[in-house]
């Protein structure tokens, strides 16, 4: 089996041949002298102990794997997929193709995936929006028709205000909303950011207008020009404003302080038990084989340790948050039921 894979990949990419050949050699060597060699070569240690798994890692059953996204080129999902593909491609011996399937907030991409063969040749970049779309309208296929594969990152949601404004701490924002009326901004009405603020308003028991926008841009402007007290958004959207000192971070909605921003408290430690997680993972067609799932779990876990990749995603303010299929499935179920409850509470769906 391994031989045929080697020649197949060899026709396409020479570097893959080299890597595959070396791994094969070391695997044979390990097989022969299992005991003496297992403790060397730390990164490949696991695979050396189990030579048949090495063959699996290299023998991903497809040369071309399509990654779908419903977002436009240049968007967060597009950049996520392309960076991931660039690192995973050589490692898995696979050519990744990123394909944009716009329309219906992910409805078309979901249909395409739900009707694809679960052979591991096509996956979909999952973010909270495909769950929102599934709950808000009646698309032909919903997230329930897809199979969670893995989660890769969390995109952190942060609370920010303008630097020359009246607020220096998160507590001041809450106090001001308690004394009078807060003006809080979130990106779009059916968004995680709005969900975070609605929950904060209830938890803190204050009066605040939660103003939603058409996207991140006009929200940032309305925070900068003082129309709003605070805004909530993804950390990477406001990077340039943070660097130039026009905006100030007050808190993050993560479950622990971020390593990149150790001085910024979490909302939870400030006394409101609210954690929102914008996940970035992959979904597949229903019925993926355990081999495919296992290959992805192993490969993605490994690529997240790549120091070069590490520096590139931490610069984009992404937190690695690997979840295998079992964990990710539980996570998606929990996320969907939380979201559904929120949408019912706010009267968006009945």
């Amino acid at each position: 089996m391994s031989l045929s894979i080697e020649t197949r990949a060899g026709i396409r990419i020479p570097s893959v041949v080299a890597v595959g050949f070396l791994a094969l050699l070391s695997a044979c060597a390990a097989w022969a002298q299992e005991d003496s060699q297992t403790r060397e070569a730390a990164p490949g240690r696991d695979s050396m102990r189990q030579p048949h798994r090495v063959a699996q890692a290299i023998s991903y059953p497809h040369e071309v794997v399509t990654l779908l996204t419903h977002s436009s080129p240049g968007s967060g999902s597009d950049l996520f997929l392309r960076e991931l593909a660039r690192r995973l491609g050589p490692q898995m011996g696979v050519d990744f193709v990123v394909e944009h399937v716009p329309g219906g907030g992910g409805a078309r991409a979901m249909s395409r995936l739900a009707n694809a063969r679960p052979d591991g040749s096509v996956f979909y970049a999952a973010t909270p929006s495909f769950i929102f779309t599934s709950l808000l309208s009646r698309p032909a296929n919903t997230f329930r028709d897809l199979e969670p594969l893995i989660n890769v990152f969390f995109d952190q949601e942060v609370v920010y205000t303008r630097s020359d404004g009246p607020f220096e701490t998160f507590a001041q924002v809450i106090d001001s909303a308690r004394a009078g009326r807060g003006r809080w901004g979130a990106a779009s009405p059916g968004s995680l950011e709005r969900q975070a603020l609605e929950r904060l308003r209830v938890a803190a028991d204050v009066r605040a207008a939660i103003v939603t926008h058409d996207g991140g841009g006009d929200l940032i402007l309305n925070v900068l020009n003082g129309t709003l007290d605070i805004g909530v958004g993804e950390a990477q959207e406001i990077r340039s404003q943070l660097e130039s000192g026009n905006l100030r971070l007050l808190a993050v909605f993560s479950d622990a302080r971020l390593p990149e921003l150790p001085q910024i408290p979490t909302v939870r430690e400030l006394g409101y038990d609210i954690v929102v997680t914008k996940f970035r993972g992959l979904m597949g067609p229903p019925g993926l084989s355990p081999e495919i799932v296992g290959a992805w779990e192993r490969e993605v876990r490994q690529v997240l340790d790549d120091p070069e990749y590490r520096s590139s995603f931490s610069q984009a303010m992404l937190t690695p948050a690997f979840m295998g299929q079992a964990d990710f499935t539980r996570f998606i179920d929990g996320f969907a039921s939380d979201t559904e409850a929120f949408l019912r509470d706010t009267g968006v769906i009945r």
């Binding site: 436009s72 080129p73 240049g74 968007s75 597009d78 950049l79 392309r82 996207g215 991140g216 841009g217 940032i220 402007l221 900068l224 990077r239 340039s240 404003q241 660097e243 130039s244 026009n246």
Partner: peptide, 28 residues
């Protein structure tokens, strides 16, 4: 000047800038 895309077209240009490690904003 702000790194804020004012339209869909500008948002795609922003994506193009980010890919090349250029962060639009005052410091650009």
């Amino acid at each position: 000047s702000f790194g804020i895309p004012g339209s869909n077209s500008a948002a795609i240009l922003l994506g193009g800038l980010l890919v090349h490690g250029l962060l639009p904003g005052p410091r650009l």
